[in-house]
Nucleic acid binder design. Structure first.
Lengths: 226, 226
DNA sequence: GAATTCTTGTCGGCGCGATGTCGAGACCAC
DNA sequence: GTGGTCTCGACATCGCGCCGACAAGAATTC
């Protein structure tokens, strides 16, 4: 549920909070919602979110104050402010709050999600998922969605590519079928574990001579041999 | 920590210096801080910064004087001045200090970081976005907003041009529809991902024989084939 | 070493989701 | 208003994933 990390949302208007929660959850984020400023600050300190979305006008403690105290704690979690009025924008940008972005109400949930993602991309630097992986004659380039065996490109379907990529992400580590289903297919998948076998077989077929790199660990799962 | 190079900060007010240091460090810059003018000039000569942020009012040696002496040394490192009063701005702009930018207090650290980056981009030569891109029979010139196929000019709409330009910016790299929407259409776009498909189709139609250069990566997005 | 049982490999077809394509309507600039 | 552009809906098409079923192979028991 929190594969992409937890996003803290502090917003006192329930309908808006629910909307934001829905859209973020749909994108695979875990969401922690608080409805007043004091609880929001406590949550920020407790749940270690990867990003925080703070309404400015809040009961208890203003969003700006939550951010200020987080920064004082040395917490540089990316923060996006929600603001209803344009003149509040000046307060965000003008002061040294360490706000990373802001969105004015009414806003599009799609836009908000896009900004959260952009922020995390920026904060994370070069994405781990973008790393080119090499194992023997095999190379896998996530950015180009390209797999080569001894330089010759392979044509893999999306599932095959993700599956191979996940195995190559930690060579030597044995993944159970359940783990692979959860990571590659996603937690919402209803597929049975046998489906994993079928795709492993197809990847092996396409790997040709390098098929041996994916080893069956009987009774457990699969691994990319080092 | 210094992957992006070292930025020299000369600022006698500790809180401000610390704030600037934090923000620059967070962006991957190395930071060297000095608190008086004399030490600042010595540091400029010693640490070879990629950019310098100089307060104007400094004990020992004014920021303007540091800059002047750097220039006299033949050191044309980009310099940003921090100034508390507007009337100081005139002194910066009026004299041939070789200042590249200035920021008035109170300032937003975000803004300062943005200016440092902009300065380095400028100093690094022609903007990446201005680069003429060529791929097989295709050339795309952002400056002239011109695309040609084997020398013959094409008439593209703004969206079509930006879309093609973005794909050609990193040939081989696969972009998801969401990435393209965010980059080409912008954050605030409410367009659905299918809109991307339509525009890709249009671009392909206009590309004629070179249409194959834009390849669909099923389940992922699009790429410009190398 | 043979029989049994469980696990894994393999094949083929069905259903669904993703993409290509066309056209209508909205919107904007002139 | 007029022309150009963007966005969306609708439909057709195609590829892919999923499952069921059986074959093959490995571990366990005797």
């Amino acid at each position: 549920m929190t594969e992409k990390g937890l996003v803290l949302v502090v917003e006192d208007e329930r309908p808006i909070a629910d909307l934001v929660r829905l859209y973020l959850a749909r994108e695979g984020f875990g969401v922690h919602v608080e409805h007043d400023g004091t609880a929001g600050l406590a949550a920020a300190r407790r749940v270690r979110p990867v990003a925080a979305i703070l309404d400015i006008a809040l009961p208890g403690l203003e969003g700006t104050e939550i951010c200020r105290r987080m920064r004082a704690d040395g917490d540089w979690t990316p923060v996006i402010f929600l603001t209803a009025r344009d003149d509040e924008v000046d307060r965000i940008l003008g002061l040294e709050l360490g706000a990373d972005d802001y969105v004015t109400k009414p806003f599009s949930p799609r836009e908000l999600v896009a900004r959260v993602k952009a922020l995390l991309r920026r904060a994370a630097g070069p994405d781990q998922g973008e790393r080119v992986r090499t194992l023997g004659p095999l190379t896998l380039d996530p950015g180009r969605r390209l797999v080569t065996v001894e330089g010759a490109p392979l044509s893999l379907t999306p599932t095959e590519f993700d599956l191979l990529g996940h195995l190559l992400g930690r060579p030597g580590r044995v993944f159970t079928r359940e783990e692979l289903l959860a990571s590659v297919w996603g937690y919402a998948s209803h597929a049975g574990t046998r489906t994993v076998d079928v795709h492993v077989a197809q990847v092996r077929a396409k790997l040709g001579g390098a098929a041996g790199l994916i080893r069956t660990v009987r009774g457990v799962g699969y691994t990319a041999d080092v």
